[in-house]
Design a protein around this nucleic acid. Structure first.
Lengths: 189, 189
DNA sequence: AGTCTATGTCAACGGTTGTTGACCTGGTCC
DNA sequence: GGACCAGGTCAACAACCGTTGACATAGACT
């Protein structure tokens, strides 16, 4: 055979990740993705069924959060921030979800489930059995707001000061914030 | 005359804001906007020249930041968070920019200039002449990351715990964060 | 050799989009 | 009344999109 189906499938997926991450869902066209993969557009349909199917495959991913019980309790915030930054830069899928979750319903749902279902148990494990689960959910949302916000400014909007900052700067500034969202006392309201 | 040009122009603008805020730039079609305004699509072209022109008009807006020198220094964080939340809910333009700035180059540029040029001087006024301007820019980016991140989770992604939280909850949690980004000592890196 | 299958190309479809230009129409002014 | 004009409609355009089905071809198997 000239090429294995797995090879071209992987090639399409790689090209799709690049285009989705750069252009978002609507502006990334199947024709452009196929061209980047050096293949006919109809091959994309053959392997992934539809544009939605291709997107679902391209946006597949895992936060790979570490177990917080393995970490010194007072450094869990900084560690988590650093972990996320590595994850952002290693895997396009997070940028894809962020860029498309804003207009695409399915991507928004994916982002929601990823952050709620993967972050909440991590936090629940940290706070222990004490405290209601609802608190863990709120804390997860707060952490997500800061983490996603920085990713938005740094990788998507490319806000100059956010881009210029070193990774260490970001960890030093955001670490205490996330630490407080995770382990700090709930403020009286 | 059956209708004044200013009236229909305003009608188109209102419909455009709604569609752009709900669907983003690409999925909001001129035809849908025109239909919502009860008008022919070609009228949109007559009044705004092109879709880009219409978008530019619809995304016009101002943060209307208060002068921080009028506030108690230790409450400037909480005040700013509350101000932003009111601003989000009163004016569609911020949601438009957030939803479209992710794929539309012009919208991203607008968001950048809005946050950098309106937030940075406010912060510089707060920290006084002391400290380099670069610090004010970094602090502005940090504030933007937390504010935009919460807006993203709450209004765009509709992450359930972020939506459920009351305004007071958000202010109580984010206030200290923003306060530290504004007035806290720069961490040693 | 001849068949079969996986891999791939090609041309076309129906639909939607931004945009354009020709045309209509109700009110205003001479 | 008739010319004029701002406000509005209509049909069509070229381009692009996702998607489809008919067709080609290189290699594996009998």
């Amino acid at each position: 055979m000239r090429r294995s189906s797995a090879q071209t499938k992987a090639g399409i997926l790689a090209a799709a990740r690049e285009r989705f991450a750069a252009d978002g869902y609507e502006r990334a066209t199947i024709r452009a993705i196929a061209a980047a993969a050096g293949i006919d557009p109809s091959m994309v349909m053959r392997y992934f069924g539809s544009k939605d199917g291709l997107f679902a495959a391209a946006a597949e991913f895992d936060l790979r959060l570490p177990d917080p019980r393995d970490l010194p309790r007072d450094q869990v915030g900084a560690t988590l921030v650093r972990h996320f930054m590595h994850r952002w830069e290693a895997d396009d899928a997070l940028q894809i979800l962020l860029r498309t979750g804003v207009t695409n319903q399915a991507a928004a749902e994916r982002l929601r489930t990823v952050f709620v279902t993967q972050l909440t148990p991590t936090i629940a494990a940290l706070t222990g059995a004490a405290g209601p689960l609802g608190q863990a959910e709120s804390r997860a949302a707060l952490v997500a707001s800061q983490i996603l916000g920085m990713a938005l400014c740094r990788y998507v909007l490319r806000l100059p000061p956010a881009v210029t900052m070193t990774d260490d700067d970001v960890v030093a500034w955001l670490g205490p914030t996330v630490q407080r969202y995770l382990t700090g006392d709930a403020p009286a309201t």
